[in-house]
Every structure is written in structure tokens, then in C-alpha cells.
Design a protein around this nucleic acid. Structure first.
Lengths: 208, 208
DNA sequence: AAAAACCCTTAACCTACATCAACGAAAATT
DNA sequence: AATTTTCGTTGATGTAGGTTAAGGGTTTTT
């Protein structure tokens, strides 16, 4: 299904406005010249995703790294028993991708799916390498972003092995208040590493 | 306890040889000039650690990033109940540090302890910033290393939430054969996210 | 408007691993 | 060499969260 870039439903703002959102994000983290802003803006393509549409899919090569400008994606893993595990949610101004597959051209171990109609700026590995050559300051940006992702995942991992589901739930609500309005409850259960039935039971208990 | 740099027991090789080990590691990943090699070698300090000695400690600021040239460290987290959880082991040619604390000067959420007498090349955040300024190509190296760490942790996390202890144990042995000769069994249990008693029982079962 | 798909809840039962306690062997420390 | 600490094992018992099954509500699709 090929949707026009001009479709006002999918793109309530124009392309330049979305790209400025990315430029803003970058400028807050490193210094970039007007010339570099232009190069960056040109390197990314604007794409829209309908609810349930995939950004990339497990088993296929993930040749996309996305900056979410609007909407929400869930990034998840399907295990050998067919169960899904949410690695993280990508909201506005977050990145979504599978670093491993993106950098090695090996099949991705993750899928990313829109939880609602969403818009993202995307780039492929070749364009990204070119971009890094043209704007070397971005090496620093992506190092810092990756470090941040690593520290977040590290905390999450340690919480997962050291705390029970109730504690992990409380931590999530504390860190992301309002997430229960953005994401269906069974997806939250998946993020917490438990079944929807268990989360339902847990929340009932917590009301006492 | 101040140990002399000349102590032949602690340093079977000389300082230059250890630094060359780091330079070799770097040169295999990015291009560096002879001049840059010298700058890098000068930025790091050689330090020795007796068995059980800490490289850095949870609750204190981690102002150390270490490249292990010999020996083994365990990097672990002590939870609110006082239980220890191994995040990873750092062997020869691995890095050990707490990125979050190192970059933010906040108290570390991790400890690193030598499992045997070990030797490492260490750097502090200020020296590292200087080094990155003098050798910008290292931005790329550390971006790539951090990406690698992130993908490894991601796999580990997803395995932890999707597989049981037996499957995680088999995966560890497959990926790191010989680890059982390097690390005591209760540390392996901690890495797997189970108690030593459970691992012992599990291995007995597996023999059938 | 009807049908289908999706989502949440509850209940009975089950299992992987934790907890607690005790023992002997090995290794480190004196 | 003696003492202490560390390490691995085994057994009895407990529990968080998984499993299975079923019901009803809500949203999406036709």
C-alpha cells in the first residue's frame, strides 16, 4: 500500500518540521553548523507507519534505524516457543533499531511494530556511514546515545534479576508515569517479563 | 598497600609490553598513527590488583575505566537485600567499568573485584576526555565497542526473560567453553541468575 | 449492524527455583 | 600444622509466577 507523502492525515506537519525535530534533538547534544544541519536533514527519509505495521522484522536484515517523530513502536523478540518479549517502547524523540543487525547485515533478532499510526525519520546503514564521514561529530553523538542505551538496559537487566514483578511494575510506573494510558496492559506485562494474567492478578492484589 | 612497579611477581612482563597489548587491540579495530600510539600509551596507567581487591566499588564514584591485560574481574551489583548479581566477567583483553558513573560522576551502581591477581591499564574520565580530543578516531572505536557491549547485553537480557536456567547454562557453556575452569561455580550461578544450590542440583540432573 | 478480533479478568492447578539448614572437602590464612 | 574461610552438595519445604480454561467487554473490520 503506497501512501502519498502529501497525505494530510498521515503527515499533519510538513517534512521540514519533522526534520527540524531531529535537528533540534541533535543540536541539544552536540554542536553542529548550518551546513551540517542540512546534510543531516537530507540523509534521513520521512516515513509513515500504520498501526501494526512493521518497521523491521525478526529474521530479516534490519537495514533501518529510525528516529520516532510521532507515535509509538514496540521493539520485541519472539522466542523459540513463540512467546513475545518487549525489549522497549520507542516514543516520540526515541530511536528504534537493531544495532546488531544494522551494523553487520545479519538477520535481525528483533521486530519493531507500530502500536498506533506513527511517523519516523529513517536511514539505512550505507547512508549512515556516508553521513558519519561527512559529519564526524556525529560519531560522538552516537557514542553517547549508545552509552545511554547501554546504561538503561543495564539497570533494567539488574532489576529483572534482583526484583520481583511487583517491584519491577512499581519501578516502571515511577519512571514512566502515564505509560498505562499509552500502551495496552498485555504489552506492559510483556515488558515486565510476566504474563498478562499475572499482571492482572498482581494489580488486583495491589489495590488492597 | 603500595606495590612497586618493578615487582616481578606482579608484573611478569614490562610496562611497554602491556601497553602494546592495548595498542594491538586498538590497531585491530581502527587505523592509528605511530604518534597516536604513543599518546594512547601515555594516557593509560598500569595497575596491579591482588585477588579480591576492588577496581571500583558500588556507592563510590567509578572514576576508572580498565583494560584487563591479565587475570579476571567480576563486575557485579549488590541488590537491596544484599544479594550479589554478576553482570559480567572481564577477562584478558576486555574492558571493565561503569559507563554510567564514569561519564556522570555519580556513585556507581556496580562493583568490580579481582577473582585472582590481575593487571589492568586504567584511565580516569578527565584523561579520557583529553585523549579523545587528541585522538578523535577513538570516538569511533568507543562507539563500536559500546555498540558491541549493548548487543551482547541485549542478547543476555532476552535470554534471561525467555529461557530457563538449564537453557541459560547451556548457552553460557557453548559461548564460553572453559569458563568453569576460570571461575568458581557459585559465581557462575550468580551470572546465570540462580543460587549456587540450584546450579549444583541442576548439574546433577544434567548428568542423567 | 453483525461478525470477528482483541483485550482483560478470574479461578484452579502446577513447576522452576528460592529458602533454610546441615555436612564435608578444599583452600587460604595464621 | 592448625584454624578459619570458602566452596560445593544434598534434602525438606515454600512461593512467585506460569499454565490452562473460560467468561465478558471493547474495539476493529466487514
Amino acid at each position: 500500500m503506497c501512501t502519498s507523502v502529501k497525505n494530510p492525515y498521515l503527515y499533519p506537519m510538513n517534512e521540514t518540521a519533522y526534520k527540524n525535530q531531529l535537528i533540534e534533538y541533535i543540536a541539544q547534544r552536540i554542536d553542529i553548523s548550518p551546513k551540517e544541519r542540512e546534510i543531516i536533514a537530507n540523509a534521513y527519509s520521512l516515513k509513515s507507519y500504520k498501526k501494526k505495521q512493521f518497521l523491521f522484522e525478526q529474521g530479516h536484515i534490519c537495514d533501518i534505524e529510525a528516529f520516532v517523530v510521532s507515535g509509538t513502536f514496540r521493539i520485541f523478540y519472539v522466542d523459540t516457543k513463540g512467546l513475545e518479549h518487549v525489549l522497549y517502547f520507542a516514543f516520540k524523540d526515541w530511536w528504534a533499531g537493531d544495532i546488531a543487525s544494522f551494523n553487520s547485515s545479519e538477520p535481525s533478532g528483533l521486530s519493531a511494530q507500530a502500536l498506533e499510526n506513527s511517523i519516523a525519520l529513517v536511514i539505512d546503514p550505507i547512508k549512515k556511514e556516508e553521513l558519519l564521514k561527512q559529519v564526524p561529530a556525529l560519531e560522538r553523538l552516537f557514542r553517547i546515545i549508545t552509552q545511554k542505551h547501554l546504561t538503561v538496559l543495564q539497570k533494567r537487566f539488574l532489576l529483572t534479576v534482583s526484583a520481583n514483578a511487583v517491584e519491577r511494575y512499581n519501578e516502571l510506573i515511577k519512571r514512566s508515569p502515564g505509560i498505562e494510558q499509552l500502551v495496552p496492559q498485555h504489552q506492559i506485562a510483556s515488558y515486565l517479563g510476566i504474563l498478562p494474567e499475572s499482571l492482572s492478578r498482581m494489580k488486583k492484589q495491589l489495590l488492597k
